[in-house]
Structures are given as C-alpha cells and as structure tokens.
Computed example of a mutant assay.
Amino acid sequence: MRIQKKLNNNVVVVKDGAIEKIVMGRGLAFNKKNGEEVDEAIIDKVFTLSNKDTANKFQELIVDIPIDHVEIAEQIISYAKTQLGKKLNETLYISLVDHIYTAIERFLNGIVISNTLLWDIRRFYPDEFAIGLTALDMIEERFGLHLPDDEAGFIALHLVNAEIDENSVKNMYQITKVMQEVTSIVKYKFHIEFDEDNVYYYRFITHLKFFAQRLLSGTSYEDEKDDDLLNVVKKRYENAYSCVKAISKFIFEKYAYILSNEEELYLTIHIERVINKMSKY
C-alpha cells in the first residue's frame, strides 16, 4: 500500500489497488512522503468507506483528533454492529468520533451537559442505550474517565440515527424543509455561503436534523439546569445568540413551536462554531 496523502503522523490515505483506504498506526507516516510504501507491521486500523463524501469528511475530521479517540470510537462501532445485527450508516464514523472526542474534552474541562432525552432514550431504544453504557465502560477502561450516563444516551442517539434509512422516513421532506429554512436564516444573518463539504457544516446539519425531528413531533425539552450555561453562552456568543432568537421567532410564527432553553443553547453553540470555522476558510 502506497501513501496517497498524509493526514498526520499517525494517519494516511493509501491506494490498495484501486481501493482508497484510511490507515492508522502510531508513527505510520513519520518521515514518510507521498508515494512511499507504508509499514504494514505497525498498522492498527484500516477504514474502507464506500461513500467518497463520507470518506472525505472523515479524513478532514481525524486530522486534529488523537488516535486513541478514533480507535475507541471504532471499537464501539464494531461492538454495536455485532450487538444490533444491523447495517449502520457510514456517517456514524464521523458523528461518533466527533462526539467521543468532544465529550472527553468537555469532561476534562469540568463541563457536564445533561441529556434531557435520557429517560426517553432508555425507554424507546433499550438496545442502543445498553451499548452506550458498555461504551462508557470501554472509555473508562482506556482513559480512566467515568463519564455520566447522559453520555450513554447521546451515544445511543448517534446509533439510532445511523440505523435510519432516510429514504423510508415519511417526514424526511418536512425535516429537510425545516433544515433549509434555518440555514437560510443563518446565511442571511451572517452574509455567508456554507461550504457543504466542510466537516463543521456537517456537524451543524446533523444537529438541525435532530432539532427538526423534535419540532415536527411536537416534542420540546426543557432543563432548568441549563439556564446558567445559556446566560454565559449568549453573552459570549452574542451574534450567534441573536441569530438563534431570529430562528426562534420564525419557528414560533410558522410552526407554533417554542424553542426551549436547551435548544437555544445548543443552536447557539453550533452556529457559533460553524460561523467561526467558515470565516477561517
């Protein structure tokens, strides 16, 4: 296998015959150049993603993420496939790697976000939640960090989302319409065009999908413990929060749906992140 592109010292894109693969191993690309052979003896993981768009986003994401975090996410996905016996969308490699990384970073910085969907997740998705709990055990064994059960719920949601065959979801058109409306407000507010191939845009859109699903089902979640955090975020990210208030007004007028504090909090954070990243390109 020859190196086609170096992502960092531990991750490279290779061509194995006609097949493009993402290969991981500690020090795999150190002092290596494109076109050189990889040392197969130190390869730890090989990812073969059939969807080129997903593969590109995965490559972009893992550039700045520690190899340990990618490996534990892949271990969780492999376990989930075995336990569920279902085909999981390849985008799970993006969403779960990103979530594991950010969850660990938040925890190490003393930030714990409660999952107000936790009770519903336990009830409606018991198999996925059980996998989420096992995932927390895997993380604790590897990193010595005891993450709260809230994170098991978040992991379960990523699994559920990966199980969805979007072509069979009856209200996918409506979900897409809501997502388009919200992104239009953001684009108008900040006078930008999104790079739809960018991983940060993808994270934002994934969040909007969950939001649209709640909106169309008429399910809103409120957690008073998020009030203090929302007050901090709306002061720190004033422009993003102003955009969220415009979205809130539009959603209420068109759908008679009131955004909870938690929804305003997460939307503000996601909008700030995607706008901040877009401005750097």
Rank of each mutant, 00 (worst) to 15 (best):
E262I: 15
E222W: 08
G132W: 07
R236L: 07
L208G: 02
D195R: 13
F190G: 02
E224I: 09
Y257A: 07
G218S: 01
D137Y: 06
L133D: 00
F154Y: 14
F129V: 07
G144M: 04
T176V: 01
K189C: 05
L136E: 00
R123I: 04
Y200I: 04
N161C: 04
L147E: 02
V232G: 06
F129G: 05
I139N: 04
V186W: 03
F129W: 07
I164C: 04
E196R: 12
G144S: 01
K234C: 05
T183N: 07
F211A: 02
M138S: 05
M179A: 13
M172Y: 14
Q174F: 14
H158L: 02
L133Q: 14
K187I: 04
A152L: 02
D165V: 08
D228P: 02
F154G: 00
T219W: 03
I175A: 07
E262H: 15
I164K: 12
M138C: 05
Y173F: 07
S184F: 03
S184D: 15
F204Q: 02
D195K: 11
R123F: 10
I247M: 11
L133W: 01
L215A: 05
R122L: 01
A212P: 08
C243T: 14
E193M: 11
Y241G: 06
S168G: 10
Y125D: 00
I175S: 01
Y255H: 11
F204C: 05
L159R: 07
D195W: 08
E238L: 14
I185N: 09
A212D: 00
L230T: 11
D195E: 14
K187C: 09
Y237C: 00
H158F: 06
F143T: 08
N167W: 09
E193W: 11
V169M: 15
C243F: 05
Y125C: 05
R236S: 03
S248M: 02
D165W: 04
I185K: 05
S242C: 11
V232P: 12
I175Q: 12
N171H: 10
T134E: 08
Y241R: 12
Q213N: 10
L215M: 06
K170Y: 02
